[in-house]
Simulated assay, not measured.
Amino acid sequence: MRPASPVPTLSPRPRLSDFFQGVGVLGRAFRLIFRSRRLLLLSSLCAALTAVALVALAVLLYRYAPGLLESVWARPESWYGRAAWSVALILGALVAWVVGANVVPPLLLTPLQDPLSEATEAECAQADAVLSPASFLRSMTTGLLHTLARMALLFLGLAVLLPLNLVPGVGSLAFTVLASVWTMLWMAAEHLAAPMTRHLYPFAQVRRMLRERRALCLGFGAGVYLLLWVPILNTFFLPVAVVGGTLLYRGLREAGDLPPPPDALGPANPSSGGRPEAK
């Protein structure tokens, strides 16, 4: 008997409880990875490379973060000033580590992300085949442009929030909280966009899902964010996020929130006025 589909069944209308369903997508992703030999192999390779990247980031921050902070804020002489400086250092380093973890490993593992997403759809028996090499090239080009746009958006949001650190007292705490929420939303966009880009959806569709399914996407992004703080499991954060984002994409397709992907539409039919033929 074939196991139940790992694709989440989403409510037809957005609701606040979708947040917990978004977090639960990660559990579905973990179960699917350990159920599939191919996904487990790809995920293990991703985890090994991610572990190296995360350790390297931690070492670099440990060595250079204090000096970077001192270059903009000299270490105070008073005990309360040093306490505030230390809090700013810790909070800033934590945010920098999360941002680095979401930039460095994905760049290193770019060649493995599409195979992971494709294998996930194959396990769900719901893969949409790319029609031609031209579609594959369009997908690669679109994916690169979207990745650059998403990374620029991440850093732009953090740059807007950065001056909060100059506010005495609660400034650093406010920056950490708001930067974390921004990063969660960005994580949701990043990993939902991966399978959508592969199927040639425009980035406007990703933004629409973030807007219309805010609680669901925020829950998914929060789950990935929290996974980064769990020792050992955090090395699996990228493959779990890729698999989870693909499952979320399939769930949105089944719920009717997304139209059929552009790469699943046939060539224009002259008798239908140039409109794509329905499959």
Rank of each mutant, 00 (worst) to 15 (best):
P76A: 14
A125K: 13
T246H: 08
L200Y: 00
A122K: 15
S139T: 11
R13C: 01
T120V: 05
V23H: 02
L247H: 03
G244T: 05
E121D: 04
P106Y: 11
A188Q: 10
T9D: 06
L32T: 11
D263N: 15
M151F: 13
S17E: 13
G221P: 06
L69E: 02
M151C: 04
L41H: 08
P260D: 08
F136V: 15
R15Q: 14
W85S: 08
R211F: 10
L156V: 08
A101F: 00
A96R: 09
L252M: 14
L54D: 03
G24E: 02
T147H: 13
P260V: 10
L233K: 05
L233Q: 03
L154R: 09
P133V: 09
R207F: 02
C124D: 01
T141K: 12
Y201Q: 08
G245D: 08
R207N: 05
T235P: 00
R15N: 08
L137R: 13
G169L: 04
A194P: 00
L226D: 03
P163D: 01
L178W: 00
K279I: 08
S86W: 11
L258V: 10
L156F: 08
V160C: 02
V25K: 13
A188Y: 10
T147A: 14
L173G: 12
L112F: 00
Y225Q: 09
S11E: 12
E212H: 05
Y225E: 03
L185R: 15
P111V: 04
A268G: 03
R82I: 06
M196V: 09
E277C: 04
S5C: 07
S36G: 09
A127V: 15
A84W: 07
E70K: 14
S139K: 12
P163M: 07
S135N: 09
V7N: 06
V95A: 11
L218C: 06
N102R: 09
E123I: 10
Q113H: 10
L265H: 05
S43W: 00
A53Q: 01
P195S: 01
E77K: 10
L192Q: 02
S135L: 13
V52R: 03
A268V: 13
W73L: 14
L32V: 11
L153P: 01
R208E: 12
W186G: 09
A56F: 10
M196I: 08
L42P: 00
S44F: 06
W229A: 13
S117E: 06
F220G: 04
R214D: 02
G273D: 11
H199E: 15
S271Y: 07
T110D: 06
V87Q: 09
A74W: 07
L10M: 02
G274K: 07
L91I: 05
L166Q: 10
G273Q: 09
P76R: 11
A4V: 13
A179G: 03
L16Y: 07
A74Q: 14
V170C: 02
L145Q: 14
A193D: 15
A222P: 00
Y64D: 15
L192A: 01
D114L: 14
V103I: 13
R208N: 06
R150C: 06
T50I: 07
L192E: 02
P106G: 09
R250K: 06
S11A: 14
T176P: 04
G251V: 04
S272W: 14
T197N: 15
G223K: 14
C217Y: 05
A65E: 01
M187G: 07
L89W: 05
L42V: 09
V240R: 04
P259C: 06
V160R: 04
L218E: 05
T110G: 05
P76M: 10
